[in-house]
Design a binder for these strands. Structure first.
Lengths: 206, 206
DNA sequence: TTAAAATTGTGAAAAGTTACACATACTCGA
DNA sequence: TCGAGTATGTGTAACTTTTCACAATTTTAA
């Protein structure tokens, strides 16, 4: 039961969690079933049960899952029983949008520092945070023991920023720069490139 | 050779294309190998060769792949031998950032219309485009035969917007709203939710 | 000219993932 | 209390994806 759990399973847990929170917010039901959840997510109920069974027995035959309990369990598994402080690198229009996004906090993350290389931006405030020079990055990460970063720089700066973040102690990076980043084992990187996503879909359009 | 090609293979083609363009831009080499490409992307060379072999024989033993030729072939396969016009729904800070992003055009897409429900935004300009009311969406999509849309609205509006886009003829949607969207078969949806990505990574952080 | 090195495309094996189907257990109403 | 209905957790089978390994071909350099 506590063997190596596949990445692909881990990747679905946040989706389950997100939908469970929606269920909590929308209805005042206390329980749901793998069937209902699967229906809402376009995932088979068997898959949901199998995924959850990697971590324990959270459901009850005949009844299903207690939503609040399952939310708590998923939060524990995903280490979301805390708010992760996040550094953002890149204060362009995307970085600015991320800095203002209020969807991080209620789901376990908070952008607390913004860095940029452009001297003309340094000192300016975004959503109450002062844009700082990259030279201050290392000390900030060390002092606050930050593990999570978001990169919203141009592609040309992203690998250098990545190297620096990792050297400073960052363990998880979400990158919006449109390129593959090299990182040593033990550092987790996730990518978001709108163009590759669109290109994947146009394959299917005549 | 021309049987059903796995989605997962299609999903990697834009990554290959992106890296090939980088190779073109950075060096003045004319050829590359599956090994070099794999090295740069953290993908095995065998996988790259197998993926490409679904579509034809693009390489040459002993030499590798001619970069320009392979780029052309991938563009054809992904239907990127044209610029796809895109409608953007949602003119908040994320929508605005997307509207200003200059990385779409050189890779086959162009945001040309922006819609929002907020009456106070309608009429304002973003990057030369006038924010329009949702009521004009259907006619715009029909007149210009648009197939691709980006949703950058709050979650609460996203399903309604999706239904409307699909009814109007949209076939591919990139959604930044943090929820699963229902759509009929034949409509392609791709998601980008920074929080689920971060949550996936925190699992691995003690 | 020849041998060594580089590289592809691919059949087959291995590994990973999903779906099936059912024993088991709980709920609800009569 | 009982029987019908609901729903879980899981062993196994089916399917999908990746890796291996090698014949075939081209390049390079002696």
């Amino acid at each position: 039961m506590a063997t190596e759990i596949p990445d692909i399973v881990i990747g679905r847990l946040p989706i389950y969690l997100r939908e469970l929170r929606r269920l909590q917010a929308e209805h005042d039901k206390l329980t749901t079933s793998s069937h209902e959840l699967g229906e809402r997510l376009g995932i088979s109920s068997a898959q949901i049960r199998k995924d959850l069974s990697h971590f324990g027995e959270f459901g009850k035959q005949g009844t299903g899952y207690h939503i609040g309990y399952l939310v708590d369990q998923l939060c524990q598994i995903l280490h979301l029983d805390q708010v992760w402080p996040v550094v953002l690198v890149g204060a362009g229009s995307l970085g600015t949008a991320l800095a203002y996004y209020d969807g991080f906090r209620p789901r376990g993350f908070e952008i607390r520092w913004i860095f940029d290389t452009d001297p003309s931006k340094i000192g300016h405030e975004i959503n109450g945070m002062c844009i700082q020079a990259i030279s201050e990055l290392e000390e900030t990460i060390a002092r606050h023991k930050i593990a999570v970063a978001i990169i919203a720089t141009p592609a040309s700066a992203a690998q250098e920023v990545t190297d620096f973040l990792i050297e400073s102690g960052i363990k998880a990076i979400l990158s919006y720069a449109p390129l593959h980043l090299s990182a040593p084992a033990g550092v987790h990187i996730s990518y978001s490139d709108p163009v590759t996503e669109l290109q994947r879909m146009t394959y299917y359009l005549g």
